[in-house]
């Protein structure tokens, strides 16, 4: 910090510190804290409240009638106290009706219905599957570009990877929708071959299968897996590969013993990014399923905010998602023995 003051002086240094603090607090930490706080309370709207109030009123009417009919002073006083008690009760109930109390607790987390919890787990499992699939698909590509291709070819392949990525995510996914739709390209090809018929609606319902979301998710986030792996494999000394080959190691063994251990940080980063993007992706399942097959968790969250207007539940669901991502990051960091500095590059 002293070297910063020495180079740029106190006014500029304090400006840097203030900007950093603003970013850290107002744009990262406090919004998270507010989201968590939001997830920890709910407005207690008692459905029976109106009925309870009505009942109290009618009871008071009866007691007032009794009061008029009462003969002795003692009985009258007794009725009077009952009326006062009822009045207080009604006032409390009515206050609760106009301004329902805010109740703190983990209610929003525990009340998750079985269906929603299944979707939560399913989304995690699906995201894990997407991550593994993406790793399997991308590893050979990353290795080829980094080590096998000539520089010219490698540059060309790099360009080939970046061009689809520069096109908007929604449009990339939409392109897959056109291919897999009921009357999409694949089904049309099948129809042309006479295997399915549009009239009889015997097309293959790809969109009702989570596999179609997988395909689009991998397609959408392929670069986040390839680039980190490419970056680490590229730093591997080619001589090591030659040596392994000379010593008679098979391709399989070379990869298992030399390339993959070297590429560990890249693999960890690729998996973290792909998992995080997949589990939190709203756009891909939204477009690919179009409500025809089951929701993903991200879609549930969206509904809580914009369809059922239940921000508290939405916040609780969101924070559950954050926890899942954090857990995944920590597990990957531990099992691949990489630090935070290796992750965000």
């Amino acid at each position: 910090m002293h070297s910063l003051i020495r180079s740029y002086g106190k006014p500029l240094t304090s400006l840097f510190v203030c900007l950093t603090a603003f970013w850290l607090l107002v744009m990262i930490a406090l919004p998270q804290a507010f989201m968590i706080e939001h997830s920890l309370w709910h407005i207690d709207r008692d459905d029976q409240l109106g009925m309870k109030i009505d009942r109290a009123y009618s009871e008071m009417g009866l007691v007032e009638y009794d009061l008029k009919a009462a003969k002795t002073e003692k009985v009258r006083a007794e009725f009077q106290t009952r009326i006062d008690a009822l009045k207080a009760q009604i006032a409390a109930l009515e206050a609760q009706e106009t301004e329902p109390p805010k109740i703190y607790g983990i209610h929003n987390y525990t009340k998750m219905s079985e269906l929603h919890f299944t979707i939560f787990l399913k989304s995690i499992v699906f995201a894990l599957m997407v991550t593994v699939l993406a790793l399997v698909v991308c590893y050979p590509m990353a290795f080829t570009i980094a080590k096998l291709a000539t520089p010219y070819k490698a540059a060309l392949m790099m360009l080939g990877l970046i061009i689809p990525y520069a096109i908007n995510e929604l449009l990339r996914v939409y392109a897959w929708l056109m291919i897999l739709d009921y009357q999409g390209v694949i089904n049309s090809a099948l129809a042309w071959l006479g295997l399915v018929s549009f009239e009889a609606k015997t097309w293959v319902p790809f969109l009702e299968n989570p596999g179609s979301v997988f395909v689009a998710l991998i397609y959408a986030y392929v670069l986040f897996m390839i680039f980190p792996i490419y970056n680490t494999v590229e730093t591997l000394d080619k001589n090591q590969l030659e040596a392994a080959k000379d010593l008679g190691a098979s391709t399989w063994k070379t990869h298992m013993r030399i390339v993959i251990p070297h590429a560990k940080p890249g693999i960890a980063v690729g998996c973290i990014m792909t998992f995080m993007l997949s589990v939190g992706s709203y756009s891909v399942p939204q477009i690919m399923t179009r409500g025809k097959s089951g929701d993903w968790f991200s879609q549930l969250i969206y509904r809580q905010f914009f369809e059922s207007q239940n921000w508290n539940t939405g916040a609780a669901y969101s924070f559950s998602l954050v926890i899942v991502c954090l857990a995944f990051i920590l597990i990957m960091m531990k099992s691949f023995k990489v630090g935070i500095r290796d992750i965000a590059k």
């Binding site: 919004p31 973290i272 939190g280 991200s298 969101s318 998602l321 991502c325 992750i343």
Partner: peptide, 26 residues
């Protein structure tokens, strides 16, 4: 330093919808 670094890059490691939601609530 490491803690600050982790916090400042944390938005990159979080799903995009979370950033939108937390900003909206805050």
């Amino acid at each position: 330093n490491n803690l600050l670094y982790a916090l400042l890059v944390s938005p990159l490691l979080m799903p995009g919808i979370i950033l939108g939601i937390s900003t909206l609530i805050f």
